[in-house]
Computed example of a mutant assay.
Amino acid sequence: MKVRILVRLKPGVLDPQGRAVHHALEGLGFDGVEDVRVGRMIELDVAEGTGDETLRKMCEQLLANMVIEDYAIEHLDGEKAPA
């Protein structure tokens, strides 16, 4: 079973990568971009039947820094589990 974990900084946490990308886009002449937040995507291939509780534990213990980041779990069949 394939699962995608999306990790991003919590609102209000400074995002220097996002600022750098935003500045670069402006420098390239792209107008209308008001803000950029950079995150990461992790794809896992897990055993069939791996529950969302197990996936949440993976995120909270290793994949995301819960102090400054949020995460979302997406099953690649389209279901999305709340974080």
Rank of each mutant, 00 (worst) to 15 (best):
R4M: 14
R37C: 04
L44D: 09
L28E: 02
Q61W: 11
D52H: 11
A64P: 05
K57S: 08
V21A: 14
L55P: 04
E43Y: 02
L63R: 03
E79Q: 15
A20H: 12
A64V: 13
E34Q: 14
L28N: 04
A47T: 07
L62N: 09
E69S: 14
R8C: 07
C59N: 07
A72C: 05
E34F: 04
Q17F: 08
V7H: 04
Q61K: 15
A72W: 01
E69G: 12
L9A: 13
D31A: 13
R56Q: 11
V33W: 01
V7Y: 03
R40I: 07
A72R: 15
V13C: 04
V21K: 14
D15W: 08
R56N: 07
L62D: 02
R19A: 12
R4S: 14
I42P: 03
H23Q: 12
A47P: 05
R8I: 09
Q17S: 11
V3G: 10
G32Y: 04
V13S: 05
P11W: 10
L6K: 12
M58I: 10
E60V: 11
A83E: 01
E34T: 09
R4D: 03
K2T: 05
V67W: 04
H22M: 06
A83I: 01
G78F: 01
L6R: 11
C59H: 07
V33H: 03
E74G: 00
M1A: 11
P16C: 05
L62V: 15
V21M: 09
R40S: 07
D35P: 00
V67H: 04
V13H: 02
K57W: 06
D45F: 01
D15E: 07
A47R: 15
H75C: 06
D77H: 02
V67N: 08
V21F: 07
L62M: 15
L14Y: 14
V67Y: 01
L55A: 07
H23T: 10
L25Y: 04
V13Y: 03
M58A: 14
G49I: 13
P16W: 12
V13M: 12
D15M: 10
H23W: 09
G32E: 07
P11R: 14
D15L: 11
L76R: 04
T54E: 15
E74S: 07
A83C: 00
K80V: 15
E34D: 11
G27D: 07
L6I: 14
V3Q: 09
L55G: 02
G49W: 11
